[in-house]
């Protein structure tokens, strides 16, 4: 299993926003036990998806020289009945960022309708020891060619 909960990043703007696509095929391993009579996408997977895209936006904004982990999430809503086969669009925005931490929000849309959201993700920053590896990851997994023509916050 690859613990990556976006399939493709379709828009990213340093310091501002990210938009990505995620599909939930019936073949996802977790659906076997969630649940055997009703394959439903666990809310925690949507939490992870929103965390991952906002985390990627923070790292991209800081030119891959920063890594980050979540320390706080506030006011998060997820659907209890999202079925396998769904395709969703993941949205993330930076509310505030500086050298030490970032504050982000995120939401999930299906057919243009918001089905999940989180008001606040707080990410403390850490110095990234291998920025070139992270940039390669963006190229290989994220469908993004990193550009670094902006001022780091």
């Amino acid at each position: 299993m690859r613990f990556l909960y976006f399939d493709r990043i379709i828009e990213i703007e340093s310091g501002k926003r990210i938009r990505a696509v995620k599909t939930f095929p019936l073949s996802e391993a977790y659906l076997k036990k969630h649940f055997s009579r009703a394959p439903l996408i666990p809310g925690s997977i949507l939490v992870e998806a929103m965390s991952q895209i906002t985390g990627w936006l923070v790292v991209y904004t800081h030119k891959c020289e920063t890594s980050c982990v979540i320390s706080l999430i506030n006011n998060l809503e997820v659907p209890a009945d999202l079925r396998a086969g769904a395709t969703v669009e993941l949205h993330g925005e930076i509310v505030e960022t500086d050298r030490r931490w970032s504050n982000c929000r995120a939401w999930v849309e299906r057919d243009g309708e918001r089905i999940a959201s989180a008001e606040r993700f707080v990410f403390p920053h850490f110095k990234e020891k291998y920025p070139e590896e992270v940039a390669n990851f963006y190229r290989d997994i994220g469908w993004i060619e990193p550009r670094w023509d902006w001022e780091t916050p």
Binding site: G43, V69, S71, L72, I73, N75, E77, P79, A118
Partner: peptide, 14 residues
């Protein structure tokens, strides 16, 4: 039980 809402979650360590 199925999750629908998280008011607050705080992470203190790994």
């Amino acid at each position: 039980f199925l999750l629908e809402r998280v008011e607050t979650i705080k992470y203190y360590g790994f």
